[in-house]
């Protein structure tokens, strides 16, 4: 049996409220808050990036896993905001954790599903028996163009999962995928901000792929929504994951523990993985969890996990995700946010 042996998250300390973004652009904050179910989002500090969030999340995962970092045979970092265009984030993470030098590393990209891509590869690689442990991270410090709808949601955070085959806290029951070529969101080389297809990002993109992957994996596992204790769907805002969960037949009790976006924003590659971490923080042993990511371009990875008795022994070894989100926050004005995100032109 393969599964998760440790998990951890990191959320930056800073937040900006929807009102403070809307007031700069003359937009109607209540309609954004209502329409997207978003109240505020996380903002990385000037000394944070995908590599730092990844390392700090992975250290929390190591605290829970309680393994020697030298046992980690592979490190996958999924992100659309790797600090370098050329030079891996995974080498920085592996070195900081003490996993080098006999560790296979790759940086992954697939818009918001790069994190679960790493998890998918890590789980199946460990299952193959080639290595005993792998680390999969979803992390982003995502950017929306100033004034664009994405600016209200593009946030920062990371989730890390150490995968193994012994001392599991959650066993993997099965995986599935649903992927097509659908250009709903993209960023071309040398451009700072992504572009998107507006409402096209909804039905033909997010909803088609998330629903497709969720149905495929439930068919494969011969399970129905009522067989699950928890569900997590990718969270580009606070509205889409709730809509898709309802449409599939899930209830608020199942999605609420993992729904972070109303006060976190969209952490892109970190989004659904952080929802999984928040769910593991509260799940009882024997709980069935459905995780479905979504990445523009477009595709969804789906996973079904069943928690074990060991989960309750390790979850308090590192900070809970909801504690990081609710208790570690300082609100900043738009000017500070613009400075931290390097949106202000200044002399070198």
């Amino acid at each position: 049996m393969v599964g998760i042996v440790g998990y951890g998250t990191q959320i930056p300390r800073y937040r900006i409220r929807v009102e403070d973004i809307a007031s700069v652009w003359g937009a109607d904050a209540p309609s954004y808050k209502r329409g997207l179910n978003l109240n505020e989002k996380s903002v990385p500090g000037p000394d944070e990036d995908t590599a730092t969030l990844s390392v700090n999340a992975a250290r929390n995962a190591l605290l829970r896993a309680g393994i020697d970092p030298q046992l980690i045979g592979a490190v996958y970092v999924g992100s659309e905001s790797h600090p370098y265009a050329v030079k891996p984030t995974g080498t920085i993470v592996s070195e900081a954790l003490g996993a080098c030098p006999r560790v296979h590393t790759a940086d992954l990209e697939f818009a918001c599903k790069a994190g679960t891509e790493g998890l998918f590869i890590a789980l199946h690689e460990v299952q193959s028996g080639v290595i005993t442990h792998a680390l999969a991270i979803g992390a982003d410090t995502s950017q929306g163009a100033p004034g664009d709808a994405l600016e209200y949601s593009a946030a920062a955070g990371a989730a890390a999962f150490i995968v193994g085959s012994e001392d599991l806290i959650a066993e993997l029951l099965t995986t599935d995928v649903y992927m097509t070529d659908t250009a709903d969101f993209w960023r071309r080389e040398h451009t700072p901000y992504p572009e998107h297809g507006g409402r096209f990002t909804g039905v033909p993109a997010y909803f088609r792929h998330v629903t497709g992957a969720a149905k495929a994996i439930m068919d494969r596992a011969e399970m129905a929504p009522e067989d699950f204790d928890y569900c997590i769907f990718h969270q580009p805002n606070g509205k889409f994951p709730v809509q898709v969960a309802r449409k599939l037949g899930f209830t608020e009790e199942q999605w609420a523990p993992g729904l972070l976006s109303p006060t976190l924003g969209n952490t892109y590659s970190g989004s659904s993985p952080m929802g999984l971490a928040a769910t593991l923080d509260v799940a009882n042993p024997g709980a069935h969890i459905l995780l479905v990511s979504y990445g523009s371009g477009a595709g969804s990875d789906a996973f079904i996990f069943r928690t074990t008795e060991r989960l309750s022994d390790v979850r308090d070894r590192a900070p809970h995700t909801r504690t990081q989100l609710d208790e570690y926050r300082v609100h900043i004005p738009y000017g500070t946010y613009a400075k931290f995100r390097r949106k202000i032109l200044k002399a070198e």
């Binding site: 500090g45 000394d47 590599a51 390392v55 600090p83 070198e348």
Partner: peptide, 24 residues
Amino acid sequence: FRRIREEGRTGVIMYGYKFVPDVG
């Protein structure tokens, strides 16, 4: 683990340790 400094906008990024208040 944080960014310590970088060699301009195109140069290498140097990472290392900083401290934050330990509030759990």
